[in-house]
């Protein structure tokens, strides 16, 4: 007989647990959805934390100056050869040999956003930006040159 009552109890317990489940899901059904609507919210509520790393950029001021002295520490710090600093040597007015940046090449398609380059940079010439919209159709477009055309290193103050 106890077997039978267990059977009935199992029945009741089971049905009860199912009903509790259904009540819970109905409760959530009546709640407001939590969805954020990209791209509708692109210019309104979309919040990207300031520290988010989406792409490496070189800081340029209004006069098209950057702070890169082409020392190549970032290139050394990079674990997977994402950065290539192309530099040239020139003679300044005093006749001293100096290095300056020609092209700061960066492969967005290989970057792992470890921040070692930014940490290593002694002049804060590079930083990570929030611009995450980088999807493209061609692989070549992900090889970027970070220094603006015609830019030069900011003169020392």
């Amino acid at each position: 007989m106890s077997n039978f009552s267990e059977y009935i109890q199992g029945y009741v317990q089971g049905v009860k647990s199912l009903l509790i489940g259904m009540r819970t899901s109905m409760k959530v059904f009546c709640q407001k959805p939590v969805t954020e609507q990209y791209p509708e919210n692109r210019h309104t509520t979309l919040h990207i934390p300031e520290r988010h790393r989406a792409r490496l950029v070189m800081v340029h001021d209004e006069e098209n100056h950057h702070h890169c002295v082409a020392c190549g520490i970032c290139q050394m710090a990079c674990p997977n050869d994402t950065i290539k600093v192309v530099s040239e040597t020139y003679e300044d007015e005093d006749g001293k040999k100096k290095k300056r940046l020609v092209r700061y090449e960066y492969d967005l398609g290989a970057c792992m956003f470890c921040q070692l380059c930014v940490n290593a940079c002694p002049h804060d010439a590079i930083r990570f930006s929030n611009d995450f919209e980088n999807a493209v159709f061609q692989r070549e477009k992900l090889y970027m040159v970070l220094n603006n055309e015609g830019s030069s290193c900011a003169p020392k103050k």
């Binding site: 959530v28 709640q31 407001k32 959805p33 969805t35 609507q37």
Partner: peptide
Amino acid sequence: ARFQCRIGPN
């Protein structure tokens, strides 16, 4: 979608 607190096709 509503059961899962989202919007669904829109």
